[in-house]
Amino acid sequence: MSDPILFTRDLWVRVHDPNGGGSPIAVVRGANIELQRGATTCLVGESGSGKTVLMRALLGISGARPGVTAGTAWARPDGSEFPVPLVGPRKRWRGRALPSLRPGWAGYVFQHPSHSLDPLLRVGDQVGASVTIAHSGLTPAAVKRRVLHWLETVHLPNPEAVAQLFPHELSGGMAQRVAIAIALATEPDLLVADEPTTGLDWSVRRDIVDLLGELCRARGMSLLLISHDFQVVEHIADQLYVMFRGELVEDGPRRAFFEPGPGSHPYTRELQARSRALEEGSSPPRLHLAEQPTSSGAGCVYAHRCPWIREPSPERSALGERCRSVRPPDFRPSSDHRVRCIAVGEPT
């Protein structure tokens, strides 16, 4: 049943401690991710929890060179498995020559269009550059035809004119569409979008999200969407991963999150409650922020903030002791739903 296009096994990413400590700190801790073919997977989590780092590491985007990585990632763009070069482009992997992935098998759309667009090149040329990644040796006329095709695919009015523009002449929504067109032009099997709607107004946000959904359906493409925006996630996700301080604390299909069911991770509940409160205009529940997270890495990553172990009852404080010292085991309410929390596993 499971046909992932990309999966990782116990992926760790460590960076040097910015506070000047000697040992590197783990920003991604043992991530197991499976992106199903043709599905939309959403990765949600706090800012700074390591979402972007995880995405960059598992796609081997240069520029993001982790200090140390461990674990493996495999891509299966067409059914056969390829190891993903975890630390940037590499020729060899574990002593073997890498069976190379098709260049452009994955496309990226970044948070801000300006991160994906080159200010000095015309839109047409940038899309054209992506086209030639997928198809080398095309005639200029053929490249142009494809450029116009991709600009049309992302619903840009008057593609001929848009192709002649420079990025600064585009509005935010248009620029993001161009960024998507550039990503699509390599004909990727997997599209990764890192907060593609931040800073855009609601009407553009809706257009972009609908466009991404439509493209996935029409082209059978898989989508990994990183977002803070629970409304977007609720609208589009098939599968969700929740990240907190480098750890994937919960994952499961959409229904596990948006329909009442057996338990969710306390952090997921916090996210949901607070975004729902904002939506409804009520005061969001208070956070427990007094305690600082420990840096040792033992225990549950959420323990310093978890409201469950702060309820004044003896069982709960006994639970808190364990939460702070043992790494919580995975609990599976159903075969495709996983929660890393002691309390969810042993309801009291």
Binding site: V44, E46, T198, G199, H228, E270, L271, R274, S275, L289
Partner: peptide
């Protein structure tokens, strides 16, 4: 802009 729901409410 660009903050997750928790930090945003904060």
């Amino acid at each position: 802009a660009g903050l997750d729901a928790s930090v945003k409410a904060d």
